[in-house]
C-alpha cells in the first residue's frame, strides 16, 4: 500500500526551522509540550517498552539463528562443507549429503519463476496500464485472495486436481514434443518436480505481481505522458516509460518471489514425490530442503540425523535471508522517494 503522506497531513505548522528539521516527528510545539509535562517517568517507561517491542524483531532473528547453529553443530563439525556436496542421503548407514535437496529446491523454484514471471508482469501491466476502472478492484481483490489461500490447501488441490491433469493431458504432450531434451521422460506419475514447480508458480504469482504493480505505480505519470506525447503506442509507452524505469524494482519483486518459493513447504511436500535423487527428468519424483524437514524431522531418531536436518534448516534460513534482503533493497531503491500516485 502506498500512501501519500503529504496529502494526509497538510497542516504541518509552519514554524521557523529548528535544528531537528530532519526528524519530522519533533516540531517545536511538540518538543516544548513534551519537556513541560510531569509525566516524564511514565513517558520514558512507555518509550522503553515500545523500543523493547521493536527490538524483539532482532531477538527473534537472533534466537532462530542461535538455535539453528546450536542444533546443527554436530554435523557442522563432522562433515563441514562436504555436507552440501554429498549426494547420498542414507540415515541408516549414517551418510548425510544435502545436494539432492538443494537441487530439488533450486530446480522447482526455477520452474516456478519461469512460469510465474511473465504471467505476473503481464498481469501487473494489465492492472496498472490497461484495465478498465470497474474491473481493477475485483481483479486485484482476486489476486490478493490467491495470496491468502493456505499452502496446505494448494497442496490438496495439487494432489487431486493438478497432478492428474498434468499426468493425463500435459505430460504426454511434453514427452512427445520435448522428449529429445531429456527433461521430459517417462515414468509419468503426475507428481514430481514439474508438478511442484507449477504449484509454486501459482503460489508466488500474487507476490510478484502485487509488488510489480506497486513499483509500476510509483513511476511518475509524467514519464508516461512524455513518451505518449512523442507519438508512442501504448506498448511502447509501457516498455520505455514504465518498465525501463521500474526494472530494478521488478527484479526485486522477482527475487522476493524466489525467496518465497525456496522456503515453501507444504504444497511442495505434497506433490514433489519425496525421493532424494538428482535426475535430469523433470517428471520424476524429487525432494526439496523444506520438504525433507517436514517429512523426516519428527522421525529423526539419533542426534546426528537430527543435526543434519537442522543444518538443512540453517542453510535454508541463510539463503532466504540473503535473498529477501537483496530483494527488499532493490524494491526500496525504486519506491523510496518516488511520489505515490493515486491508483
Amino acid at each position: 500500500m502506498a500512501f501519500n503522506l503529504e496529502e494526509v497531513r497538510p497542516s504541518r505548522p509552519s514554524l521557523p526551522p529548528t535544528a531537528e528539521a530532519d526528524a519530522p516527528a519533533q516540531s517545536a510545539i511538540r518538543a516544548y509540550l513534551l519537556s513541560r509535562g510531569n509525566s516524564a517517568v511514565s513517558d520514558a517507561a512507555f518509550r522503553w517498552l515500545m523500543l523493547l517491542s521493536g527490538l524483539s524483531i532482532f531477538a527473534i532473528i537472533g534466537i532462530i539463528a542461535g538455535e539453528l547453529i546450536a542444533g546443527s553443530r554436530l554435523t557442522l563439525a563432522k562433515f563441514g562443507l562436504h555436507f552440501f556436496f554429498g549426494t547420498a542421503w542414507d540415515p541408516v548407514s549414517g551418510h548425510y549429503g544435502a545436494l539432492p535437496f538443494i537441487y530439488g529446491t533450486l530446480v522447482s523454484s526455477l520452474i516456478a519463476l519461469i512460469i510465474a514471471v511473465p504471467l505476473s508482469i503481464g498481469l501487473a501491466i494489465f492492472l496498472t496500464e490497461m484495465c478498465p476502472k470497474p474491473l481493477r478492484g475485483p481483479l486485484s481483490f482476486l489476486t490478493e485472495l490467491l495470496a491468502a489461500i493456505p499452502s496446505v490447501v494448494y497442496g490438496l488441490w495439487a494432489i487431486f486436481v493438478l497432478a492428474p491433469i498434468l499426468r493425463d493431458h500435459v505430460n504426454p504432450v511434453l514427452i512427445h514434443l520435448l522428449g529429445w531434451t531429456g527433461l521430459f521422460a517417462k515414468p509419468n506419475f503426475g507428481i514430481g518436480m514439474l508438478a511442484a514447480g507449477v504449484i509454486l508458480a501459482i503460489m508466488i504469482l500474487p507476490i510478484i505481481s502485487s509488488l510489480t504493480r506497486e513499483v509500476m505505480i510509483s513511476v511518475p505519470r509524467s514519464q508516461r505522458e512524455a513518451v505518449l506525447a512523442l507519438g508512442a503506442t501504448r506498448w511502447e509507452m509501457i516498455r520505455m516509460g514504465v518498465l525501463r524505469n521500474a526494472r530494478i524494482g521488478i527484479v526485486g519483486a522477482i527475487i522476493l518471489g524466489l525467496g518465497r518459493a525456496l522456503g515453501e513447504t507444504m504444497a511442495v511436500t505434497m506433490v514433489i514425490g519425496n525421493r532424494p535423487d538428482i535426475v535430469k527428468n523433470l517428471l520424476s519424483p524429487a525432494y526439496s530442503m523444506a520438504s525433507v524437514l517436514a517429512n523426516e524431522f519428527t522421525e529423526a531418531a539419533d542426534s546426528t540425523y537430527l543435526s543434519a536436518l537442522v543444518e538443512i534448516g540453517l542453510a535454508l534460513f541463510i539463503i532466504t535471508i540473503l535473498v529477501n534482503a537483496l530483494a527488499r533493497l532493490l524494491v526500496w531503491a525504486v519506491t523510496r522517494g518516488a511520489p505515490a500516485r493515486a491508483s
Binding site: I64, L68, T265, L293, G313, I321, V323, N324, A325
Partner: peptide, 9 residues
Amino acid sequence: VLNGVPSIV
C-alpha cells in the same frame, strides 16, 4: 526480512 523466513524454519 523476517517476514520472508520460511515458516518451517
